[in-house]
Nucleic acid binder design. Sequence first.
RNA 1: GGGCCCGUAGCUUAGCCAGGACAGAGUGCCGGCCUUCGGAGCCGGUGGUCGGGGGUUCGAAUCCCCCCGGGCCCGCCA
Length: 622
Amino acid sequence: MSVIEDAIREFVEIVARVTGADASKVAQEVTFSNREEFGDLSVALPSLGVKNVQALPESLQGKKFVRLVKKEKVYYNAYLDEKEIFESLFQNLSEFYGITKVDNPKYIIVEHTSANPIHPLHIGHMRNAILGDIISRMLSCRGHKVERRFYVNDAGRQVAILTYGYIKLNKPDPPVGVKADSWLGFIYSVTNVVLEIRKIKGELNSADESRRAELIKRLDELVAAAATLESRDRETFYRLVDAINSDPDPEKSIADIVRKYESGTDKEIVSTVRKLVDMALKGFQESLDKLGVKFDGFDYESDLLWRGEVKKVIEEMMSSPYRITYKDTLALEVNVQDERVRDALEIPKGLELPPLVIMRSDGTSLYTTRDVAYTLYKFSRGAEVVINVIAEQQSVPQMQLRAALYLLGHKREAENLFHYSYAMVSLQGSKMSGRLGKYVSLDEVYELVKASVEQKINEKGGNREVIPEVTSGAIRYAIASVSANKQLNFNVKTVTDFEQNSGPYLQYTYARAYNILDKANEEPSVSEADPNYIKGDWRNLLILIAKFPVVMKKACDELRPEDLVAYLREVADVFNKVYNYERVLQEPDRGKRFTKLLIVKGVERVLHNGLSVLGITPLKRM
RNA sequence: GGGCCCGUAGCUUAGCCAGGACAGAGUGCCGGCCUUCGGAGCCGGUGGUCGGGGGUUCGAAUCCCCCCGGGCCCGCCA
């Protein structure tokens, strides 16, 4: 129990006693005061059902941390005793201050990023990776056993398209000096665009007037994408186009690759696909390393297929009473009606959940079905909770997944599977498309931000060694500070702007605090500190520091990085303000100096531990 | 057309789920500090019909209804 929580409990006791309201209800309604003049803790009395607000009797005083409770309008506001807070807080400030473990830690698997291994990671994946990494850090900060896993979607149609193009090029090695995922992305895009153009041209003859217009518009888009791709590498582009166009039935060739890979019987196909996929994954890890994102394991879809786990799920579906015929094929009716079940599975009331098609007509599997098998696999590893960090576009398939699990009798798994959804990242007007090869890659973004950091550090004659940490800090902050469900309109300026609202600002502030302590040459003691000096901004800082454990707990439990970011920034703001007009080391009075040093120590710990949870490196020098 | 998400200062955004005190920041713009224990800083000013309209309530940015705008989904893709 932290100091601030003790203080809150005292206030709750007082309010509960005087109003007769239930203590747990009061605890729910108590907030940190939103303005200095209203004290430190507040509770709106009407929210407790108290109509006639009474002034507090004198006898209510005498608590340790609550010095005074005042009635103001319809509020009771508590004023905390900064001397008691200060003493209790700094008596034994732990290195791990603010990190509170839950009583019942769980085994939680966080699946994130899981990008198709067919093109380099782009800024959408960057959001996914950083959010996934941060929520993993948050959960493990709370003491949970967290495993981060990357689902390798190597069995789908898209990998088959890439493989097809690669084979058509006679399986070349990537050119020297080119990152493999980027090179594969080019092959994939060209192949896909050519295939789509072919398909549309074929459809065009038999289309009616309105459909024709639609197709032509789509065709224009494809041709434009093709032109852009052509300009990247004419020679490869045309070799690929010619090779594909000489194939009488490319769609069949691709379907063959899917089938052969799934069955695992064709050694040639298996080794080719695996080679390409692993090349892409290597590129991903290289990109993610720069942002400090690591995985505990990569799970290949194909392994689930080859081990028979997907087959088992399909059998369960085939013998399920919910099996239906849908669009001339077998499907699972997943549109559960029971309101309570829908609630538990977070399926919106108004949504008609479409049936889940069990497999393709040629017997090969589909993504969501494979995902059922994968989810069961994750739980079979011992996970009690599974969190999938996946774009909002996939919310319907994620619901189908939960519903399918539930209907197949995997109730516990269905109810403990969560979709951590995030909105799309758009790119200054234009829309990204992995399929058309239109994207800004994570690597490109990283380089842009890095160039900006480098320039800034050169200007200031700063520490060039920390360029990577500052770059990663800037990017992480930009992602972490926006709620996941908000669309992110990415512009480079936002991330390369290192003003007060940025990762580098926090890192810089940390360095300031750290260096004061580093240069102090003395160990301040609480008993010799001057408690009368805790006022004004020093007091504000102290109270902010005291709040840290509560803020951290809440942000981590609710998986809201943006709350932690906002709090850390406030700490940094107040600290920088004091820093500007108050000397610490030059303070001649020993007692006052100790007070200041201890509070700076608190700021240092809060920023250090807070930034670490966000995966932003606290820097001693920058 | 149906469903889901979003709409808060010029721009980015917190507060909305669990309704309460003059809606809080950053950035931009205008003016000041002039290098300090690290200026990636500090101080002041400017800027808001909380998309619009109804309703519920003692009280609505927050809850309910309708409308408007943006995004996403509605494939035997993922």
